[in-house]
Nucleic acid binder design. Structure first.
Lengths: 142, 142
DNA sequence: AAATATTGCTTGCGCATACAAATATAATAC
DNA sequence: GTATTATATTTGTATGCGCAAGCAATATTT
């Protein structure tokens, strides 16, 4: 079989999986009008009103510049506001943003159900935890 | 802990892993002057001179348009040529391209060693095979 | 308190990938 | 043998993310 070696390349398989699941996630989160990443950022804000951009970056494992851009778009959509406090930029959900909480949770549940059905019960969630640990190991966070 | 639910989201963990391993791969393949994906495309061409773009897309699990762009760059670099045959576009490695084969293989070995060391012997390779199967399941290829 | 360093965020730019529409060739139907 | 459909590739456009450099606020040093 041509190209079999690719199956043994974590770079390849990880990124392929990323693309596949991203499509699924975008599909499910479309109901919320948000990209999956934006939706998870919103969830972090719901969990801690006034969270800083720095914290958001740490939780989401995204670069500061990427967080800035996500925030930008969510502010334009009127879902969050940011208050500058010293050199921190603190993020709060607006009423319109809070109104999305339920929807976002549903989208997320739908996504999880969708892949857990395809992968076998709980296999998806377990794989996810595993991948999280693997990333930590690769980044040498112990 | 804030944002713990993210560990259970395959969208998130898969993409994070993708970013982490991509950085490692880019780093290792820098020695070849190629992006990891281009390097794997070259490997596919080494394996089958005159491979079509369609086949490349299937092997690499990339969209045709993405393949077109990769080819474009490799042609500009003088590593491959493409001969149009009917509606197929067949890809061949140039001498300059073939000269890279050894280097590319080394880069790949280095990458695999690097993550296998961090993840434990063979764990990386096994994970990779697993992720490949998972992607197949999610895409409903049986 | 002035000079320097650090920290958090933003901006400009680039890369990888995708989707949709356009194009080109081949195959099939009639 | 033309008309229609199918297939392979290309082109235009968009998104998500990163890096590097810059800016602004605070902390540290002297």
């Amino acid at each position: 079989m041509l190209g079999t070696y690719l199956k043994e390349c974590l770079y390849f398989t990880a990124n392929r999986l990323g693309r596949v699941i991203t499509k699924m996630a975008e599909d499910e989160f479309a109901a919320s009008g948000l990209s999956p990443t934006s939706a998870f950022l919103m969830m972090a804000v719901f969990e801690k009103e006034g969270i800083s951009q720095k914290e958001l970056g740490e939780i989401l494992h995204l670069q500061p510049s990427t967080v800035t851009r996500l925030i930008e778009k969510l502010v334009i959509k009127g879902l969050i506001t940011s208050r500058v406090e010293g050199r921190l930029s603190l993020i709060f959900a607006t009423g319109k943003g809070k109104a999305l909480e339920e929807t976002i949770n549903e989208c997320w549940n739908n996504l999880r159900n969708r892949y857990n059905v395809l992968l076998g019960v709980k296999e998806g969630d377990e794989l996810s935890l595993h991948l999280y640990e693997v990333s930590d190991q690769l980044e040498n966070i112990e």
